[in-house]
Write a protein that binds this DNA or RNA. Sequence first.
DNA 1: TGCATTGTATTATTTACTGTAATACAAACA
DNA 2: TGTTTGTATTACAGTAAATAATACAATGCA
Lengths: 124, 124
Amino acid sequence: MIIRIDELSDIPIYLQLRNQIVMGISSGELKAGEKLPTVRDLALEMGINTMTVSKAYQLLKTEGYIMTDRKNGARIRTEIKKEASVSDANKTELRRIVSEARISGVEKQELIDLIDKYWEGGND
Amino acid sequence: MIIRIDELSDIPIYLQLRNQIVMGISSGELKAGEKLPTVRDLALEMGINTMTVSKAYQLLKTEGYIMTDRKNGARIRTEIKKEASVSDANKTELRRIVSEARISGVEKQELIDLIDKYWEGGND
DNA sequence: TGCATTGTATTATTTACTGTAATACAAACA
DNA sequence: TGTTTGTATTACAGTAAATAATACAATGCA
């Protein structure tokens, strides 16, 4: 899986990494049980620090997306807890995005089209 | 207009304030030409620092949402620049939200329903 | 003219987070 | 035994956020 980090973004690297993996799981690019690169390999490949990758893995583990095991490494969880609800934080974010789009003259259907695309795993 | 700040949020106060005003404009609660509280009044009312409010106003001014004038104070712009496109940052955020929702078992229609609600100015 | 109010600028300080770096440790496996 | 894994620790530098205390420029009003 290709992971791209935006150096100019104000989103921390470990969060961008976490987000990319979550989106990879959703799109099906990362399948249940699939092995993730070791923290050292991924850090080397991305040119970032080992602890930064570890921080992303720890977050993903806490959130229930992956499971880690010494020597086994990190893997995508086979059974991810489904709360079947949008978090309050995501609702607030969504409302902000809708508001900004609406003010700037974007059609509502365009937002729905984006939902459709991202739901199907579209990447841009 | 009622402005609520979440002390526990990891979103900076000045950004939360900016977001609330943007959402207020979108929902119609804040109308074009309407006068905003002075930075000192709003800071006092919200129990935050004057410069924090000023930072939010400066951001809103830079983004074209409001206009400020000494002695006139801050007002909602009558003509807000419409780019008619969703920013790249918002697209990435939207994709993240869709991904998290999908994994957690949320129905796609539920997201579309949220778009509808927020588009119409719903507040939760 | 004098005064108050407005957004804004400046400087300093505290606090927290981010990212890196260098190690070290415990567990598991060949 | 030795290697690899995630993880923990400590230290450091950089940045951002928020507050605090002032001060300034522009405007309107008495």
